[in-house]
Computed example of a mutant assay.
Amino acid sequence: MVRAWARERPDLDVRPLEVLSRVSRLARHLDLARRSAFARHGLEGWAFDVLSALRRAGVPYRLSPGALLTQTLVTSGTMTNRVDRLEQAGLVRRLPSPDDRRGVLVELTDAGRGRVDSAMADLLAVEESLLAGLDPAARARLADLLRALTAPFDA
Rank of each mutant, 00 (worst) to 15 (best):
L73A: 09
E44I: 13
M79S: 00
V83H: 00
A33I: 10
T109D: 05
R85K: 13
G58I: 12
L91A: 07
R15S: 15
E128R: 15
A132S: 14
M120I: 02
A132Y: 06
A47K: 10
G112N: 08
E44T: 12
L32T: 09
L69K: 14
V50F: 12
N81L: 02
S97T: 05
H41E: 14
V83I: 15
A27F: 05
L73H: 14
E87N: 07
G112T: 06
R56F: 01
L20C: 12
L91G: 00
T70D: 12
A37N: 11
F38D: 10
D117V: 15
R55I: 03
L30M: 07
L17I: 02
R85S: 07
L123I: 13
L12F: 15
A53V: 06
R40E: 10
V50W: 13
G42W: 11
D117F: 05
V92F: 00
D84V: 03
H41P: 12
V106F: 00
L32G: 06
V92A: 03
L123R: 03
L86C: 02
E87V: 03
Y61G: 09
L17H: 01
A47P: 06
L86K: 08
R62D: 04
R93Q: 11
R102P: 02
V83P: 08
E128I: 00
E44H: 12
S64G: 13
A111G: 03
L68D: 01
T75P: 02
A33H: 01
D117N: 14
L69V: 11
E18R: 13
P65I: 06
G58W: 02
P60Q: 07
G112P: 06
P16V: 08
S76T: 11
S129I: 01
V92W: 00
P96N: 04
H29Q: 14
V116T: 09
R94S: 12
A125N: 03
R62F: 04
H29S: 13
A111D: 10
R101T: 15
P98F: 01
A89L: 09
R40Q: 12
P60E: 08
L51P: 11
S36F: 11
L26N: 07
A33L: 15
G90L: 07
V106K: 04
L54D: 00
Q88K: 14
R113G: 09
F48A: 11
A27N: 05
